[in-house]
């Protein structure tokens, strides 16, 4: 990939994160050019008893993400994960296994954790989607996020957004979670670096903090 040709003249002005995002956008654009959009035919086909026909070309759909309605133009084969990362610039949700086995891509659909690599973007219509960006930002830390930092619950950090999404959902539905519960909460999240003990500790500290009142 010829990153250098696309870089701004003053490369010091661009952060590593912005640079990586830029590179991703280039790759995504090329992907779109390879497959020319088919003629959009969204008209319901009454004769066949079809209430909706979508694709195979890219079509604009609406997704409610972190409380805001976003419009995104994607082919039906685009997963929610790809739509978030490649089309909506929400790169906090990570792609690892792309087959539902690692949990890195976990987001909430109506408050429940799901692996976004196993959901078609169009199937997420009509649901409240929450991504890690909706849970917290560096200047709007959640108690769980702060506890992750305090307990060093991230090493390379790649599993961390997914881990936090699973844990946040579990703590919301069971604010009195014990060790066994927090372990089960992240049973679908794999961490290669071995942060689990500190993830458990972080979650339990939030549970204890919650019992004392807000910490």
């Amino acid at each position: 990939m010829k990153h250098d040709k696309h870089g701004p003249p003053d490369s010091r002005a661009i952060s590593r994160r912005a640079f990586i995002k830029g590179a991703g956008a280039i790759a995504a654009t090329t992907g779109l050019i390879r497959t020319p959009p088919a003629s959009a035919d969204a008209a319901p086909d009454a004769q066949d008893g079809i209430v909706e026909r979508i694709g195979p070309g890219a079509q604009t759909i609406e997704l409610k993400i972190n409380g805001e309605v976003k419009r995104v133009t994607v082919e039906p084969r685009v997963t929610l994960l790809r739509a978030l990362r490649d089309h909506l610039n929400l790169t906090g949700t990570k792609l690892v296994c792309d087959r539902g086995a690692c949990g890195a891509c976990t987001v909430h659909l109506d408050g429940k954790p799901v692996t976004s690599c196993m959901v078609l973007a169009l199937d997420a219509r009509g649901h409240e989607i929450t991504t890690i960006e909706g849970l917290l930002t560096p200047d709007r830390m959640s108690p769980l996020g702060a506890a992750f930092v305090e307990h060093d619950a991230a090493q390379c950090g790649f599993c961390t957004p997914g881990m936090m999404m699973s844990m946040a959902a579990a703590l919301a539905s069971n604010p009195k979670a014990q060790l066994e519960d927090v372990k089960r909460a992240v049973a679908g999240n794999i961490c290669r670096c071995g942060t689990y003990p500190h993830v458990f500790a972080a979650a339990l500290s939030v549970v204890r903090g919650g019992n004392r009142g807000e910490s």
Binding site: T35, G49, V51, E52, R53, I54, G55, P56, P76, R77
Partner: peptide
């Protein structure tokens, strides 16, 4: 992954 359309049948 190949390209495909998605249909929602009425019933």
């Amino acid at each position: 992954m190949n390209r495909f359309e998605v249909l929602t049948p009425a019933d």
